[in-house]
């Protein structure tokens, strides 16, 4: 599509959403069922003072799969390219699982991260885990491709503990939910 087409389409779609009560549903539909979140910056970035290679006092982890390389307990793990929150890997969970007793949010936002092992772009769902205390470990904030809250489905500054029995935030996961389509590939 040309830039003009995209712009026109966005404007028309936006108008349609706004002028209809069904717009709320459309917005909902625009959000991927999956998860992620938020908190941030200043503190998260304190973690980077450790050189971005893990956190002081947090033992490095491995997925055990050479095709899924890196340390899931480190902010520079490839799936965390747009995460904003406490890493569940450091909190009794994993990149794809919540800590025991917490609840995984069914509503979330997504990012697109490149796996250095196969060079493929994966769609990552940053599901938040909810209902236990804020974990407090491994606060990580990366914003590759992140957009402002005008595009909530691409924003990590929101508490995505939505649709859960409690909205109290615990930590964030980074679940692979698919391969990203190459924009250049035929539709």
């Amino acid at each position: 599509m040309t830039k003009f087409d995209r712009l026109s389409e966005a404007a028309v779609r936006g108008l349609a959403r706004f002028t209809s009560r069904r717009g709320a549903l459309a917005t909902l539909g625009g959000l991927v069922t999956g998860g992620a979140f938020l908190p941030a910056l200043p503190v998260a970035r304190a973690a980077e003072s450790h050189g971005g290679k893990g956190y002081d006092g947090v033992a490095p982890q491995s997925t055990g799969n050479p095709m899924d390389p890196g340390d899931p307990a480190s902010c520079d793990y490839w799936r965390y390219c747009a995460i904003d929150g406490f890493l569940c890997s450091c909190c009794g969970g994993s990149p794809s699982a919540c800590p025991p007793g917490s609840e995984m949010s069914p509503i979330t936002w997504i990012g697109t991260c490149t796996n250095p092992a196969d060079g493929r772009k994966y769609i990552i769902s940053y599901n938040d885990c909810c209902g236990k205390p804020a974990c407090g470990r491994c606060l990580c904030n990366r914003n590759e491709g992140e957009k402002p809250r005008t595009r909530p489905q691409s924003n990590n500054d929101i508490n995505w503990c939505l649709g859960t029995s409690t909205a109290a935030y615990t930590c964030s996961t980074a679940v692979i939910i698919g391969l990203a389509l190459d924009e250049a590939s035929p539709k």
Partner: peptide, 24 residues
Amino acid sequence: DIPGCTDAYPLGGGGFASFCGNGA
């Protein structure tokens, strides 16, 4: 309801403004 939009900045003439996913 402000579907597809976010926030509420007060307007001098009353009411409020919200920013929307279509760039408006």
